[in-house]
Nucleic acid binder design. Structure first.
Lengths: 344, 344
DNA sequence: CCTTAGCACTCACTCATCATGAGTGCTAAC
DNA sequence: GTTAGCACTCATGATGAGTGAGTGCTAAGG
C-alpha cells in the first residue's frame, strides 16, 4: 500500500466518513463546502481523480461523486482511524449491564449480542466459548422415573449438556447418585479417547454405568467432531435500515450468511487464532459471499483452554469507529467471564 | 360466518389455493382455463363478485383479479381444508431425524425449528418448555478455583442454569460437594417462596450455604418474574423469498416482530392455554403489528407442568396445508420429549 | 509546478405521456 | 340461472424530455 500525501489522506478520510454517515456518493463540492480545507473544488477533484486511479475510491457512474472502495476502507481503518476506545461513560454503562446479571454464560452471550448490536448499530454475533478438545468436568444423574433419568454433563469449557437417558433397568435416585459419584471418580476431566480407553473402559461396571459411559463418550466425540458452535445473533434490524439493502436480494444475502452457518464457521475458525480485533472488509477476496459486507470480529477467552468469537456484520459502509472499539470492549468482558470459569 | 353454496366454496378454494401458489391475483379466466368446472368466465365472475360482496375476497384495484381476504383465508382454513396430516413418509423422515440426536432439549428445539422452517417453508419459532412456577430439582457445585465455583441448577421443567459464584471463603471441592448435598436435601423441589421461607431459611447454614441459597432464590424469582422464554428461530430466509416482501419495509416488520419479542410473548402466552394448532390470520384484529402475517402455532408439553410453543410465521398467503400438519406433528414430537422429562 | 476558473459533457433521476392488456361489471339474449 | 358481447378501468412498462450534481480537461494565474 503506497504512501499518500497528508492532503490525500485527509480527503480520503473525509470521503469515507462522509459516505459512512450519509450513504450518498461524495463530490468535490460537498467536501469543500462542508470541510473548508482552503482548497477549490477543482483541486479536490484532481486529488479525487488520483485516489480513484490508485484504487482507493470508486464511482458508481461517470458523473457521480466518489465512494470508498474496499481498499479505501482498509486504508482508512488501518492508517487513518486513531485507535479509539468507547467513551468512559459508555464503558461504564456496558460494564454495569453485565454485572447486573450474574456471572452466567448464557446471559452474558445474549447481553453481548444485544450490546454490540446497539453500540455498533449492526447485526451482531457471539459464539459460546469452546475448548479445542472437549473434557468432562462433572456429571450428574437425576431420576425422572423408574426407567428414565436426566444425565447432566458439565464440561471443562463451561458448556453443559443435558439428556434424557432410558435406563436398562428400573433404578432409583439413590442408586443413580452412586453411579454419578463412581463415574465422576473414573472420568474426572477425561477427553473422548480417555473415556473410551481409560479406567472406565476396563473397570467392572454395572449395566447402567456402562450405558452412561457410552453416552458420555458419544457426546464428547460429537463435540469434538462438530466444529459447529452455538451462535447468538441480534440486531438484524439495524442492517435492514441501511439504504444499501433497499432491494431485498441484497438483504437476502445477509440472512443467508447468518442462517447458513458454514461460511461464518470458516471465518470464525480463523479469527479464533488471531490476536485482537480483526476487520474483514468486503470478503478480502477470499469469501465471495460477503463481498459487500464487512465483519469486525474478535476472539475472546483463554488461549488454549476455551475461546469464542464476538463481532458484528454490516455493509462495508460500516461505522468502524464505533464497531471496532465496541467489539474490543465486549471481547474483553467476555474474556473475563471465561477466566473466571477457569479459576483465574 | 354464512353458509356458501358448494360452488362458491369450490371457487373460493380455487382462488385461495391458486393465490397461495402463485402470489398473483386470480381472475375468472384463469379459473375456467385451469380448472374447467364447466362454467363460463361470466358465471365465475358473478360468483366472484358475490364472494367479494360478502368479504371473502378483495381486489387490489378495480380491474385486477381477486385475492383472498383474511376472512377468506379463515373460511378456507376452517371449512375447506380437510384436516390433513403429513405424508407417512415425511413423518417417518422427521421422526428419524429427531431420534438421531439423543433425547436432548437444546438439540430438539433446534431441530424442531429447522424442520418446521423446511416443511412449512416459513420462518419458524420454538420456545423452550417452561413451568408456570419454577422449582429447583437439583443443584451442584463444582470447584473452579479456591474462591470460585460453578453453581449448576437443574429445574423441574428441564431447564438448566449455570453461574459462576464467588465464594466468601476459600473452599475445595470436597466441601462444595457437602454443601451441594446438604442444600439438595433442604431445597428439593422448592419454589422461590419455599426457598425463602422453608427449612433452608431457618436451618443454621454456613456462609457459603447461605450465599448459595440466596442465589437459588434469586434465580427462581427471576425465572418466575420474567415471562420471557428462550425462542429459537429459523427459516427467515423463506419469508424473504416471498414476493410480498419485495419492498424492504414490509420485511422490516417481520424482523421487528421476531427480534422485539414483546409481541410474540403476548401471543405465545395465549396459545399456551389453547388446545391444538392455532391459526392466527392477519392479526385477527387484535395485533396490529402482524396484520399482514399469519401465525400457525401449537402448544406442546405437559399440561400444568411445563409447556412451550412451536410454530411458524409467514405472510397471510401461507401454505396452510403444509404448515398446519407440520406444526401439529412437531408439537407432538416435542410433547413426547417433555413427557419423558417428567417421567411419563 | 501547483492551483483554480471556466466550460462542455455525462448520466442517473423524475415526471409526464402513451399504448397494452388482463380483468371487470353490466346488459341482453339463450 | 347461464353466457356472449361490450364498454370501461387501471396497473404496468416503454419512451422521451428536462434537471442538476458532478465530472474531466484546458488554459490562465500565483
Amino acid at each position: 500500500m503506497e504512501q499518500l500525501t497528508s492532503r490525500q489522506e485527509e480527503i480520503l478520510g473525509i470521503v469515507v466518513r462522509e459516505y459512512i454517515a450519509s450513504a450518498v456518493p461524495v463530490g468535490s463540492q460537498t467536501i469543500v463546502r462542508r470541510y473548508g480545507l482552503g482548497l477549490s473544488p477543482a483541486t479536490v477533484r484532481n486529488e479525487l481523480a488520483f485516489l480513484e486511479r490508485e484504487g482507493y475510491l470508486l464511482q458508481t457512474h461517470a458523473s457521480a461523486g466518489r465512494i470508498p472502495s474496499d481498499k479505501g476502507y482498509r486504508y482508512f481503518v488501518h492508517r487513518l482511524m486513531q485507535e479509539t476506545e468507547l467513551s468512559p461513560s459508555e464503558q461504564r454503562m456496558i460494564s454495569h449491564q453485565f454485572h447486573q446479571v450474574q456471572l452466567e454464560l448464557q446471559q452474558w452471550m445474549k447481553l453481548a449480542a444485544a450490546v454490540l448490536a446497539q453500540t455498533a448499530r449492526s447485526a451482531s454475533l457471539v459464539t459460546a466459548p469452546k475448548a479445542p478438545q472437549a473434557r468432562l468436568k462433572h456429571l450428574e444423574m437425576i431420576s425422572l422415573s423408574d426407567v428414565t433419568a436426566l444425565l447432566v454433563m458439565v464440561f471443562q469449557d463451561g458448556s453443559i449438556r443435558q439428556q434424557v437417558v432410558l435406563l436398562p433397568t428400573p433404578t432409583g435416585q439413590d442408586e443413580l447418585t452412586k453411579v454419578s459419584n463412581h463415574l465422576n471418580e473414573l472420568l474426572g476431566s477425561a477427553n473422548a479417547a480417555e473415556v473410551r480407553t481409560g479406567p472406565a473402559a476396563t473397570a467392572s461396571l454395572t449395566a447402567i454405568e456402562r450405558h452412561v459411559v457410552d453416552r458420555v463418550a458419544e457426546t464428547l466425540e460429537q463435540m469434538d467432531r462438530r466444529s459447529e458452535r452455538e451462535i447468538h445473533r441480534d440486531g438484524l434490524i439495524h442492517v435492514l435500515r441501511q439504504p444499501e439493502f433497499a432491494q431485498v436480494d441484497k438483504f437476502r444475502q445477509v440472512v443467508e450468511v447468518l442462517e447458513r452457518r458454514s461460511l461464518l464457521e470458516s471465518i470464525i475458525a480463523e479469527v479464533l487464532w488471531a490476536n485482537g480485533v480483526q476487520v474483514i472488509i468486503g470478503g478480502e477476496g477470499r469469501w465471495d459471499d460477503i463481498e459487500d459486507y464487512s465483519l469486525v470480529l474478535s476472539p475472546y477467552g483463554v488461549r488454549g483452554e476455551a475461546n469464542g468469537v464476538v463481532g458484528v456484520l454490516g455493509p462495508t459502509r460500516m461505522p468502524y469507529d464505533r464497531a471496532i472499539p465496541a467489539v474490543r470492549f465486549v471481547a474483553r468482558l467476555m474474556s473475563s467471564l471465561v477466566e473466571h470459569m477457569y479459576g483465574y
